[in-house]
Amino acid sequence: MAAVEHAVEHETTTGLPNTKLAMWLFLASECLLFGALISAYVLYRGADPLDGPTPADVFDIPYTSVSAFVLLASSLTMVLALSAAQRDDAVRMRLWLLTTAMLGMIFVGGQVYEFTTFYNEGLTVDVNLFGTTFYVLTGFHGVHVTVGILMLLSLVGMSLAGRLPADAAFPVEMVGLYWHFVDIVWIVIFTVVYLIPTGTAG
């Protein structure tokens, strides 16, 4: 949404486009949002679950590692999309944007599958604190990825309809900032939630 508010930008005081500055402020705010969510998870991790499964019961680390890798790879394709946009290569730009969106969809699809599996194994949002904090944290991230996918697809659509501004690289760069941020957040979440053992495993 912010990515398209660039239409009339005059010379600015700092020389940075307003939209870019706004995006950085927004992402700074988002850092605290995820910081708070991750804190809640960390504070409650290892709490003795009175009921329901523990992380060790449900996590499938290799599976999630693959989907994390897919999301990381999408950052690379995002960079390629931006680079194509900067070269005014609309065709490659669309191609890489689509690839990025596809990789994002694979990640979200993987998350849906993972949630379903966990749910079938008895992990619900209300069964214990692990379920509560896990679903809310990863769910918020999943929603962010989904919004990112929508923005990527919108860029492709606008590009096809010829409605991107002359400087197409700019909106691509803005969406890219958001996309990289969401990826980085996932690295943190993946490390904190999946990789660091909880102590009550077993």
Partner: peptide, 29 residues
């Protein structure tokens, strides 16, 4: 604002979907 946003979501989820963030009977604080 992001901090209260997270807290309000947690409160809302506790009320609406019975999550355990602040429920001491399930270990919430």
């Amino acid at each position: 604002l992001p901090i209260i946003t997270v807290a309000l979501f947690q409160l809302l989820f506790d009320r609406r979907w019975d999550t355990a963030f602040f429920d001491p009977t399930r270990g919430g604080d």
